[in-house]
Deep mutational scan, measured.
Amino acid sequence: DLPPEQWSHTTVRNALKDLLKDMNQSSLAKECPLSQSMISSIVNSTYYANVSAAKCQEFGRWYKHFKKTK
């Protein structure tokens, strides 16, 4: 379990794929700090720029909290 400071584009993509087993992209976009188009691009590997470090950390913090509450 990585601390949010160490999250990267790959970590975010893997976490998104895991979350999308249980929910669809639009529900996920309402919950998490990423937009639906960004989620779609990341999981389909069409998001060519890497997600910014700040966004990765924000998502990492959100993901840890989300997993605790589920």
Rank of each mutant, 00 (worst) to 15 (best):
P3K: 12
S41T: 08
S35C: 04
W62F: 01
L19Y: 02
L16S: 01
K55P: 03
M23S: 07
Q25R: 09
L28R: 02
N44T: 09
V12S: 00
Q36V: 12
A29L: 08
R61C: 13
N44L: 02
I39D: 01
W62E: 00
S45G: 12
D18Y: 12
Y48L: 11
M23P: 03
Q36L: 07
Y48T: 14
F59I: 00
S41R: 14
P33H: 06
K55C: 12
S45N: 15
P33G: 13
W7F: 04
V12W: 02
N50E: 13
T10E: 15
D1N: 10
S26D: 10
S27C: 03
L28P: 00
N14A: 11
E58A: 02
L16G: 01
N50I: 02
L16W: 02
T46K: 13
D18S: 10
Q57P: 02
E31V: 15
K30P: 07
Q6V: 12
S8K: 05
S45E: 11
S37P: 09
S40L: 13
K68V: 06
N44S: 05
S26H: 14
P33M: 02
S52W: 02
T69L: 11
A53P: 06
T69D: 08
A53Y: 10
G60M: 09
K67Y: 05
E31C: 04
L28M: 06
V12Q: 01
W62V: 03
K21D: 15
P3G: 09
K67S: 10
S35I: 00
A15I: 14
L19S: 01
S41Q: 09
S52M: 01
S52Q: 05
P4D: 08
M38G: 03
F66H: 04
F66M: 09
L19N: 02
Q6W: 11
P4A: 11
N50C: 09
E31W: 03
T10H: 11
L20T: 03
W62A: 01
Q6R: 13
K30Q: 07
N44Q: 10
D22E: 11
S27A: 15
P3F: 03
K21W: 02
A15N: 01
G60S: 04
S40V: 09
N24V: 04
C32A: 04
M38C: 08
Y47S: 12
N50M: 04
S41I: 11
I42C: 05
V12A: 02
T46Q: 05
A29I: 08
K67G: 05
C56V: 10
A29G: 10
K30V: 09
E58C: 03
C32Y: 02
L16D: 01
L19W: 00
S35G: 08
N44W: 03
H65Q: 13
N50Y: 07
K55I: 02
M23G: 07
A29R: 04
S26V: 13
A54M: 07
F66C: 11
L34C: 00
C56F: 13
S26K: 11
Q25T: 12
R61G: 05
S45Q: 11
V43Q: 03
S27R: 08
Q25Y: 09
W7A: 02
A49E: 08
M23K: 03
N50W: 06
W7D: 02
I42Q: 03
A29Y: 06
C32I: 03
A15Y: 02
R13D: 00
M38R: 04
P3V: 14
S40G: 08
L20R: 04
T10V: 15
N24I: 01
E31R: 13
S40T: 13
L16F: 01
M23T: 06
L34S: 01
S26L: 11
I39L: 06
Q57A: 12
K64V: 08
T46R: 08
Q25C: 07
N50T: 07
Y48E: 05
L20V: 03
S52R: 02
T11K: 08
Q57M: 13
S45Y: 10
T10L: 14
N50V: 06
D18A: 07
M38H: 08
Q36F: 11
L16A: 03
I39H: 01
W7K: 00
S40Y: 10
S26G: 11
Q57L: 08
M38V: 09
W7S: 01
A54S: 10
K30W: 03
S52P: 11
S37N: 12
F66R: 07
Q6M: 15
T69R: 08
F59V: 04
K30E: 14
A54F: 05
S27N: 03
A53V: 06
T69H: 02
C32V: 03
G60P: 00
P3W: 10
K55T: 14
D22P: 02
A15L: 03
Q25G: 09
A15C: 15
S27Q: 13
Y48S: 13
M38L: 12
L28N: 00
C56A: 09
N50K: 14
T46G: 11
A53L: 15
S35A: 07
S26P: 11
D1K: 08
K55G: 04
Q25H: 07
I42D: 01
L19D: 02
N44I: 03
A54E: 12
T69P: 06
K70G: 13
S52F: 01
L28E: 03
T11W: 07
Y47N: 15
M38A: 03
Q6L: 12
S27G: 06
V43L: 15
K64Y: 08
S8L: 04
T10W: 14
D18C: 07
S45M: 08
Q6C: 11
M23H: 03
S40M: 09
D18R: 10
W7I: 02
A54T: 14
V12R: 00
A15S: 05
S45I: 00
K30L: 11
P33I: 00
Y47I: 13
A54Y: 10
A49P: 10
L20W: 00
K30D: 13
A49Y: 15
S45C: 14
N14W: 13
S8R: 07
R61M: 13
C56L: 12
R61E: 13
S35R: 02
D18H: 14
S52T: 14
F59R: 00
L20H: 02
S35Q: 04
E31G: 05
A49R: 10
D1H: 01
A53N: 04
K68S: 12
C56S: 03
T46S: 13
C56Y: 08
Q6Y: 10
D18V: 11
H9R: 14
Q25S: 14
M23D: 07
T11V: 07
K68F: 12
L28Q: 02
R13G: 05
S41M: 14
A54H: 06
F59M: 05
L28I: 09
S40W: 08
K21E: 03
K30I: 10
W62I: 06
F66L: 09
Q36R: 09
T10P: 11
V43F: 13
V12C: 07
E31Q: 15
N44K: 14
A54V: 14
M38E: 15
K30F: 06
H65Y: 08
T10K: 15
M23N: 08
K70L: 03
S45W: 05
